[in-house]
Design a protein around this nucleic acid. Sequence first.
DNA 1: ATTTGTTATGGAACGCGTTCCATATTATTG
DNA 2: CAATAATATGGAACGCGTTCCATAACAAAT
Lengths: 327, 327
Amino acid sequence: MAGIKDVAKRAGVGVGTVSRMLNDSGYVAGETREKIEVAMRELNYTPNELARNLYHKRTGIIAVIVPSVSNPFFVEFVDYVEHELYEAGYKMMLCSTVKESNAELEYLDMLNRHIVDGVITGVHSLDVEEYKKIRKPIVALDRYLGEHIPVVAVNHKEGGRLAAEALIREGCKKILHFRGSTAVESPYHERHYEFERIMKEHRICTYTYELEWNRFDAGYYREAVGDVFSKGFDFDGVFAVDWLAIECMNEAIRRHLKVPGDVKFVAYDGTFITELVEPKMTAVVQPIESLAKESVRILCDLIGGKDYKNKQVMLEAQLRKGNTTIV
Amino acid sequence: MAGIKDVAKRAGVGVGTVSRMLNDSGYVAGETREKIEVAMRELNYTPNELARNLYHKRTGIIAVIVPSVSNPFFVEFVDYVEHELYEAGYKMMLCSTVKESNAELEYLDMLNRHIVDGVITGVHSLDVEEYKKIRKPIVALDRYLGEHIPVVAVNHKEGGRLAAEALIREGCKKILHFRGSTAVESPYHERHYEFERIMKEHRICTYTYELEWNRFDAGYYREAVGDVFSKGFDFDGVFAVDWLAIECMNEAIRRHLKVPGDVKFVAYDGTFITELVEPKMTAVVQPIESLAKESVRILCDLIGGKDYKNKQVMLEAQLRKGNTTIV
DNA sequence: ATTTGTTATGGAACGCGTTCCATATTATTG
DNA sequence: CAATAATATGGAACGCGTTCCATAACAAAT
């Protein structure tokens, strides 16, 4: 592979001149330019980005860490992030952690090893102490990783309220509520707290089903749904994350319950799958595009040296009326 | 940031010794080892991968190029690929091209610029001549990019046959067939050719709807479905790609048609979304996991210097019976 | 005791582009 | 015409780890 030296030799100039020309910095005479261009073409020269990166101490790559690539929420997030990063001149390295337990640390370590310039993480499996050690550009998606790491979050309390109010408005009296594991403290639990609080306030009977931590697979969701139905709990309203709400609705339909006649559903996240089922799901929609935009914007600021201590961006979720509710 | 020189100085040894220790190559006395370890810890030293990469001319990163990250087929593919690459010691750079028209060339150029060690591409928007120029590890997913680029393909002819036979078995007499644009030649068109051939052979009335090229968005699919229904074409069997089959089924359900009583559906791809709808879709399932495994395997071979001229791996699709067909 | 082999270590050269400094030539201005 | 500025260029040093070669100490074998 031809290097800059070869080009310089062939063009009869110094390496500095070639470099200056490549980067449009400093003076290069028109005539010299042409000679170099010819030499580059003849040698089929492409600059080695690796050498460049070594000098500049940057790679132009951002790692995006998510628990699972097949989770629709993260799929949409990643899709937007990729686009935003592209616009900002970065490439995206996509890392998923659910299949390999201790991958998160490995991925974060890429920052120190100069493999990536920054990290956007939607994962939180390490001790906060671990994150503190890393003094590099990190943005957390909806997780608190310590005060020195900026967070792009969603107002889940409001989200929970929207869901609760929707079901109450529908006149639901017996609610089935699937909630994430309390084993891990995370801001997105707020929706559950608020949801339950409001239900209690309204003295509405609520059956809460607690899910295992970090399990997003279809099989598990189906199992959970089967579990609930087999227990014979009677309900007329369901609040659950997209996929689970859908599985639950499907089971209801299979059992010849009418949706939304007999049972109402409000899904949380509002990813594309809620629009893919019939009836279309009413959902509390997360502002995924904004989450992506903000994450990238803040990360770019961090890389640019801006200090974002205690920074938190809070975005609003909103209710999107589908046909699993009536009003 | 501390470098290897600083560590060497602090430990009172030469840089070579530190390097040898880091790589477990050559001799390092136990006593020296300890001194270096102490120095590394004190300086909080992490080797700069960039410098390493420059020397070794590799980055350990593979670019995966797909048209869209939100297309379920590619989502599943990417999910498996990420895992396979991780196992093989590589990181995945994910590149999507649908939003930025000329990104493919830019992404492929990363090979020459030593940013990635290899490419797996599910995109084919350039002239075959462009691909010929690149003498680097590339694996094509289900596209022919020229004889020097190995292909991991699916036997779509068989896939088309499976779909056709399924609908014939159901006794369908009026078929609605959504097919990809013929504007671009691609192996996956085989399924349509074979499907139509068999239908013709059986003298079954088929209405073919040709889709625009490179459009996978929900809005467009819905539009296409609305288009067909508004034209008043009467059908009792549908063959379409997952998402479109689903949109079509939903519209049928909304129009109070019974599925599978009045209309039967066979989807192509068989991604998770076909299992998410009620009734669950009968589908020709692509061997996505195997596609991912084979792609990674071949790419690793290529990187390892193996020659794969004219290589083509052909994998089989299979029919998965859901409830949108009866038999 | 001498040779041969093993262990151990330092450091220069290298990979490849970038930048800065020194030097040179030409253009502009007073 | 001299002096300053602008243009132009080569090349060493640098970024940071790796590898190889030269050197040395010590153990084992003859």
